[in-house]
């Protein structure tokens, strides 16, 4: 279990770097487009397509597992005080189970969609260039699947906090 949690840590951290690349690439691409058309009267190709078909998907889904592992997901904290320390730990385990369920089903459904898009070789045409769009679909099952894994790894740490701190 420890190696598994170390691997997930590495992988989620690594993927968040790709998210950063997504943010910066999007910024540069949009800026280049604006400057290009206002200053030089030239248009940078495929801005809209790249933003909607790649950058946005990259920067939301690739860091998702990392966000989940750091527990940055938004939740309603108002009632946490009601449950007590032990209650909260039990609830956290249940919540992790729910999250695994939802993430897994999302991963499977979007995987099938991605395969379908891959099979037809989905593409769009912007200006004269043909842009393939199917790779963008794979960010979804990838992001959701890894998030499920992160929640799975969390359960033993919640059940046996002792051994977890020793391991760390």
């Amino acid at each position: 279990m420890n190696t598994l949690s170390r691997i997930t840590d590495r992988l989620t951290g690594f993927l968040s770097y790709f998210g950063m690349i997504g943010v910066l690439a999007m910024m540069v691409h949009i800026c280049a487009d604006i400057i290009g058309r206002t200053v030089f009267d030239i248009s940078v190709p495929a801005t809209l397509e790249m933003v909607t078909r790649y950058y946005m998907l990259m920067l939301v889904l690739l860091p998702l597992a990392w966000v989940e592992s750091k527990r940055f997901m938004i939740m309603v904290e108002a009632f946490s005080g009601l449950f007590g320390k032990l209650g909260l730990r039990i609830i956290d385990v249940l919540v992790a189970v729910v999250c695994i369920g939802v993430y897994s089903i999302l991963a499977i459904s979007t995987w099938e969609k991605a395969i379908e898009q891959y099979d037809v070789g989905a593409y769009i045409v912007a200006l004269d260039t043909q842009i393939i769009v199917w790779p963008g679909y794979f960010t979804l099952p990838f992001g959701f699947g890894l998030a499920a894994l992160v929640c799975l790894v969390r359960i033993p740490l919640l059940l046996f906090p002792q051994s977890a701190s020793e391991a760390a």
Binding site: D33, R37, S43, L48, I124, V125, A126, L127, D128
Partner: peptide, 19 residues
Amino acid sequence: GKAVTMATGEAFEALSQRV
């Protein structure tokens, strides 16, 4: 000319950007 494919809803943005 050059033919371009895009969704109807995106034509406005593309025309205003002179794409």
